[in-house]
């Protein structure tokens, strides 16, 4: 029993990170139908920038806030310089553009930062809690609550605020949104900023546990994308569930079956799910007009 609990703790911690990356995908996808493959780089930038600002002598909270702000700015620039000029381009074009952006950001990070692996201290120390024979790091609790807070915050933003509703309106029908007076360009910029900030927050929360370096983004984008698709693209709740599920599948496969094939297990589950539910777990059925 205690080992099962240990696998669950491990799966939830890792899964929460996937969920945050998947949420980042969802925000941008909803506002612009773009799948942003540079999403993993936002996580990397959040962690790496915090490391370097922290090393320069800024307290950890200030460093984290600055790093998130910096990443959000980069998100806005990405939208302004690469996505906006390509409006109306095909889906595949946009995918290649964001892949190009991720290569670009990685290349920049290895020059501005470095190619070493980094870490900063955990927020509340490294002494694990002992729960029914399993151990949980205080930082894991930070990650879990951080992910929950981000999710609830986003939910409230989209359903309770006028600005949030404007984003949803833009996502539904760009032209109609503009007709009722919504500044859709601003909404796009806002979505990229928000998505980048969510990614950077994940980077800040998780770096004390998983460490960071300039090239961690590739794998995270892959897993986050898979999580978003498993949950159903465009559905924030689906992103959350998809991320946690993949984390749990990986951890229990590594624990009970074979650590060699834990990534394989996650992808097999995704494939089987999509065969049965082609829109993912919580995705909406889309209609094609002729």
């Amino acid at each position: 029993m205690s080992e099962f609990l240990q696998f669950v703790f491990s799966g939830l911690t890792v899964g929460a990170v996937y969920a945050l990356v998947a949420l980042g995908f969802t925000i941008i996808y909803n506002a612009s139908s773009v799948v942003n493959f540079a999403q993993g780089e936002f996580v990397m930038l959040g962690g790496m920038a915090t490391v370097f600002i922290f090393d320069a002598g800024v307290p950890i909270w200030g460093a984290a806030a600055l790093a998130i702000l910096l990443t959000a700015t980069i998100g806005i620039l990405l939208n302004k310089l690469a996505i906006e000029p390509a409006r109306g381009a095909s889906v595949v074009n946009l995918i290649i553009i964001t892949i190009g952006a991720s290569i670009f950001l990685r290349g920049l990070a290895q020059i501005v930062f470095d190619k070493q692996i980094h870490r900063f201290p955990a927020f509340s120390g490294d002494t694990p809690f002992n729960i029914a024979g399993a151990t949980l790091l205080p930082q894991s609790i930070w990650v879990l609550f951080g992910a929950a807070a981000v999710f609830i915050g986003l939910y409230a933003f989209f359903t309770r605020t006028l600005m949030g509703k404007a984003v949803l309106a833009t996502a539904n029908n760009r032209l109609a949104a503009r007709l009722v007076g919504i500044n859709t360009n601003f909404i796009m910029a806002l979505s990229f900023a928000l998505s980048a900030a969510v990614g950077a927050t994940a980077g800040v929360l998780v770096t004390p546990i998983t460490l960071t370096s300039y090239d961690i983004g590739v794998m995270l984008a892959l897993k986050g994308f898979a999580a978003a698709m498993l949950g159903g693209m465009g559905n924030p709740f689906g992103a959350l569930v998809g991320g946690l599920l993949i984390g749990l599948i990986e951890a229990t496969t590594a624990g009970y079956l074979s650590s060699d094939y834990k990534d394989a297990a996650a992808f097999i589950v995704i494939l089987l799910t999509l065969f049965v539910m082609p829109q993912g777990l919580f995705g909406q059925k889309s209609m094609e007009r002729v």
């Binding site: 240990q6 696998f7 703790f9 491990s10 911690t13 890792v14 990170v17 151990t135 998780v206 546990i209 998983t210 460490l211 961690i216 590739v218 794998m219 951890a251 229990t252 590594a254 624990g255 650590s259 060699d260 834990k262 990534d263």
Partner: peptide, 12 residues
């Protein structure tokens, strides 16, 4: 075993 970009090895 664990993969090159894995971030948690507590199950193993």
């Amino acid at each position: 075993t664990y993969g090159p970009s894995d971030s948690d090895m507590t199950p193993q």
